[in-house]
Nucleic acid binder design. Sequence first.
DNA 1: CGCCTTTGACCGGCGC
DNA 2: GCGCCGGTCAAAGGCG
Length: 264
Amino acid sequence: MSEENRRLTEVIARLYGGQIPRLGLDGSASPPRPVSPLSGKKRSRESMETANSCDANSNRHQGGDADHAESFAADDGTCRRIKVSRVCRRIDPSDTSLVVKDGYQWRKYGQKVTRDNPSPRAYFRCAFAPSCPVKKKVQRSAEDSSLLVATYEGEHNHPHPSPRAGELRRRRGGPVASFRAPFPLNFLGPDHSRLDLHQERGTRCTWFKGGHPPPPPDLKKVCRKVASPDFRTALVEQMASALTSDPKFTGALAAAILHKLPEF
DNA sequence: CGCCTTTGACCGGCGC
DNA sequence: GCGCCGGTCAAAGGCG
């Protein structure tokens, strides 16, 4: 039996060896492909080991904020394959939330303490589309508690929601919502006209000129103005200024930089 | 009120 | 056959 297992393992390794594509950090390099859902509740441990084969790679790059590796796991001995990818992120060791922000919406359906790691492993399903087969496991690295390892199984069968859309989506009551930015969302353009994005919920952003009540906005004009290099430069400068003048932001930035510095 | 998280129970594969 | 273990379910409580 074990001999047969060994031979099967070799066959699988030959079949899938060299077919592991590399993606960018956001995993967006390949278009979404339909993926067959896991048949039954479990996958074989052999498949899991295949999926985890990139561990060494991931841990080798702990200096970075995130690492990404990817593999395919065979399912039920058929030719169907499940895309498995891993993402490592460095987080605050005191942060126990087990949340890896990737732009998608996830619904937690379980948490378990595993044998090989004292920190709990959280199980998430994609909540953006009910039929989406993608699952995510998040667990702190056993060696480095400041390293969060997210394992993605399967591929999304829906377009990637914009990062903001993911955050904006309300917990209930429909897909549209407002969000509170950490800095004022009204900008002075190079000609001292003002774009005010800090509106009440349900209203569109409007364009102020000279601080007077706005005329009905001409959306095309607004878009042209926002797209102009002058306005974008002014926008970046004001955003940078707003961020750097916020003591909370500079404090967090300093802490993040200190965290990255090697210890001597 | 409805959605989300938590958490103990349960299920099924695997090794002995 | 039994126990271990990872993964999933689902009831209960929390929260906005």
